[in-house]
Simulated scan of single mutants.
Amino acid sequence: MRILLIEDDKVLQSVVQQSLTDKGHRVDVAGDLSAAKYMWHVQCYDAVLLDLNLPSSDSQTAVPANGLHLLQERRHKGDKTPVLVLTARNRTDERIAGLDAGADDYLGKPFDLAEVDARLRALVRRSQGEDSTTQLAHLVLDRKGRRVLVHDQPLNLPAREFEVLSELMSPPGRTLSKKELSDKLSDFDEALVDNALETFISRLRKKILNSGATIRTLRGLGYLMEEERP
C-alpha cells in the first residue's frame, strides 16, 4: 500500500514510518498543513493516517483543528481515500468530530504499531470490497496474515515482493501498468525505477512457477495475473 502519514511530531513520524515501511508499505510523510495539502492533491494514496492536531507552515498562528479542516476539505471534493485519524486517548469530542468529518476509523494515542498496520489494511480492504484472502489456481494470498501459500505450503516473500504480488492480485485478471505499480510502491521523493520493478516481477515468476498462476507481460500495457494456460 501507499500511505500518507500526516503527523507533526518528528519522533512519532519516524517510528510509524519505519514500522509501516518494514511491513512493505510505501510511506510519504507530511509534517504540516501545506505539505499535507500538496501531497494529498498530487498523489493518489491507498490510505491516509491523519493527526488532527496539525500545525500550519503559514505565518499565521497554528490552529489545533487543521487536520480536521483538511479532512473536511478532501471529503467535500469527493475524495474517498480511507482515513485513519489519530486522537488523544481521552478526547471523545475529537474522535466524534473526526468521524463526522468523514474519517473511516480512529486510533487513540498512545497506540500499538501493529494495530496501525492492521487497521489501515482493514480500511483499504473495506473500501475496495476485497476479502483478506485471494486465490488464483493453487496460489493463495492472505493479506491479513501477510503470507502466501502454494499448494498449501508457505512461500516466504520479502516485503516488497509481497506488496507487488498483492497489487497484482487485487484482483487477479486486472492489467496494471508499470506506472501504476511504481506509484503504489514508491516513496514521494524516490520512484521505483522500471529495472527494479522488472526484477521483482522476474523473482515472483520463478517463485510461483508451480502454482498454476502466472504473471503475463502485456507489451505497452503492463502486467496481468492469471491462471496458466494449458
Score class of each variant (00 low, 15 high):
L4F: 03
I6A: 07
E7I: 01
D8A: 13
S14C: 14
V15H: 05
V16Y: 00
Q17E: 05
Q17V: 09
T21N: 10
D22W: 04
V27D: 04
D28G: 04
V29F: 01
V29Y: 00
A30V: 15
G31Q: 12
S34A: 15
A35M: 11
H41T: 15
C44S: 12
C44W: 00
Y45N: 09
A47S: 06
A47P: 01
V48E: 00
L52C: 09
L52F: 06
S57I: 09
D58E: 15
S59Q: 13
S59M: 12
Q60I: 11
A65F: 03
G67P: 04
Q72T: 14
E73Y: 09
R74Y: 06
R74K: 14
H76I: 14
K77G: 15
K80P: 09
K80L: 12
T81R: 11
T81V: 09
P82W: 00
V83S: 12
V83L: 01
L84T: 00
T87E: 06
D93M: 08
I96D: 09
D100L: 05
A101N: 08
G102Y: 05
D104Y: 02
Y106I: 08
Y106G: 03
Y106F: 10
P110A: 09
F111D: 02
L113V: 04
A114S: 11
A118P: 15
L123H: 00
V124E: 02
R125T: 02
R126Y: 04
Q128Y: 03
D131L: 02
T133K: 06
T134M: 02
Q135R: 15
L136E: 02
L139G: 07
D142K: 08
G145W: 01
L149R: 09
V150A: 01
P154E: 07
L155D: 09
L155K: 10
P158L: 14
A159P: 06
R160P: 08
V164N: 01
E167F: 01
P172E: 04
G173H: 05
G173S: 06
T175R: 08
S177R: 11
K179C: 07
K179I: 08
S182I: 04
K184H: 08
D187A: 13
F188N: 13
E190R: 11
T199W: 00
S202V: 14
K207Y: 02
I208S: 05
S211R: 12
I215W: 04
L218R: 14
R219F: 10
L221A: 15
M225E: 04
R229L: 10
R229E: 10
